[in-house]
Design a protein around this nucleic acid. Sequence first.
RNA 1: GAUCCUGUAGCUCAGCUGGAUAGAGCGUCCGCCUCCUAAGCGGAAGGUCAGCAGUUCGAAUCUGCUCAGGGUCACCA
Length: 616
Amino acid sequence: MIISCRGKHFYFIVTLMLNELKNEWKNIVESALKKIAGTDDIPALGMTEPPKSELGDVAFPLFAYSRILRKSPKDIAEDVKKEIEANGKPDGEIILASGYFNVKLSVSNAFDSLYRKVMDEGEEYGKNRSMENKRIMLEFSCPNTNKPLHLGHMRNDSIGESISRILKANGAEVLKVNLINNRGVHICKSMLAYKEFGNGETPESTGEKGDHFVGRYYVKFAKWAKDTDEKINEAEEKGDMALAEALRANHPDKRAQSMLKDWEDGKSDVIELWKLMNKWTLDGLEESYRNMGISFDKIYYESETYKYGKAEVLKGLEDGVFYRESDGSVQIDLAEIGLDKKVLLRKDGTTIYITQDIGTAIRRHDDYPFDSLIYVVGSEQAYHFKVLFYILKKLGYKWADELYHLSYGMVNLPEGKMKSREGTVVDADDLLSELERLAENEIMDKGRDEIVGDVASTAHSIALAALNYYLLEVTPTRDMIFDPKKSISFNGNTGPYLEYMGARLSSILKKAEEEGLRAECVDSSLLKEDDEKTLIKLISDYPDVVEKAARNLDPSVVAQFLYSVSKTFSHYYHDNQIIKAETEDLAKTRLALASAVLQVLRNGFALVGIPYLASM
RNA sequence: GAUCCUGUAGCUCAGCUGGAUAGAGCGUCCGCCUCCUAAGCGGAAGGUCAGCAGUUCGAAUCUGCUCAGGGUCACCA
């Protein structure tokens, strides 16, 4: 806080948070520079962290001023120091080092008010209002109803769920939506295969999860189609053209296509089968979502939304936004954004993918007038969204500027892309249960089963921590490689490691309580260890981390932060006794630090899908 | 061909709005359980930040070119 009084500056330190204190210093150094230069027109002052703690907590490089001031950065630092000392300065010790103006802050002292704040706010600590009054719709997952979820979906779901929590933590009102892709020729394929080979079996009769059951028929279809191709080839080689022709006329692909037409015509037996199989899959998917801690506020079905776009396109045609090609199709010329022409309605008047998305977007804005709509969809669809947003803008929708494609990278295997044809797709349910099995083994091996109580549920939490952390610690926009054999581990920089730190903290606090020791910031200046200062700084940084994660739509910001907190605490409590500290005051103060660290961890865990375990 | 993304340790990834000696985990090697849970802690080895040029007091970070890998450019979704 700076109070100006008759031209002279007095500085009052009123329990400033560390970051505010840093900014305070920045302003002061900058004004000093301006005064020395005799002008306000100087390069903006940079602010970084010194490489070593002996060099202070915040650093201002002065090299840029060397030219204007015709002095060495070292001399400038001296001048700034003199200038600042003459006027009184905020809390902190000035350290000059090779062209930098550094400040060592009284980190420990800051803990007093920081601790109070963290404890007062509890699980609210770190939340902010940077996105207050913003209504954001977030679309993610968007599965097909012809097969179970795989690893690619899991990345999508983890990112989507995490982003929604991060946005909420920044004060936004978030509506999570899913768009179920339950129509189209691919859906007919599993239906057809079921009709052909199903013999009336059901998920209940075989004991399979519905989505896996349907997925099995989708695979069956692919094999059927392939076998038919081979039979056609054989027949042709034998010269049996009549057979080849007959096979071709009755080809599964052809039959699926005609089934789609029956579906669109509303043929009752097709619709009934479609409803039945859709339900099987959706029940299965819902179970997977529940297992993974994913939820939605609203679910759209493509079977209901696919028609919306057509009217919009026809309206755009009237308004001259689109044009009719000589063959009768409706198109748009994308030359303005450096792209080719794009078809919006086929010559037979039927819609395509983008037409549906146009209609769905408009419909959604009617349903829920959002300030922003974020699509969590793979990077391979970047072109699609670029075109979609452009078209909506051309149609005159102002909110089109607030549409955003959160383009996440692909999940590849060490051998390359996952291919369903080669059976290399990593199934979501299988992966989760394998992780649960490994976690359960760990618990039993360590003999922790009695302490944790419910082994299965603990194993489930550990599996989720492993999975979510693995998927979220990587920047979303980047492709990532998943090695099923070794990538998911419970040691090192992993979800279970973070979870373990939470459990350790909880157990220390519990033990202290049993011994009648209460966490209390008796004297923050007792916290002299480097690790203690680092922890205080980290706790104080957390709200900024939450804000940055939202700004960048990047959960990895939170994940990496949580790792550094855990890592630091782990190192700290290994070297320093908390409960049995030298004095009771120190023990209490360290317990206060530990409680604050735990609160921050728990708050962060919630944002990246790591369940908190009091013991493991 | 056009366009977008990526290239950092053996592997998987941070760091990228320019700042001090480029980081972590895994893997390898070596230590540490009379001590609040060893899912832990410490140490060692491991780097031409793809290459070349430019901008700058200063470049992994910005710009250009080159090379390599991937995505997309459908009347599929």
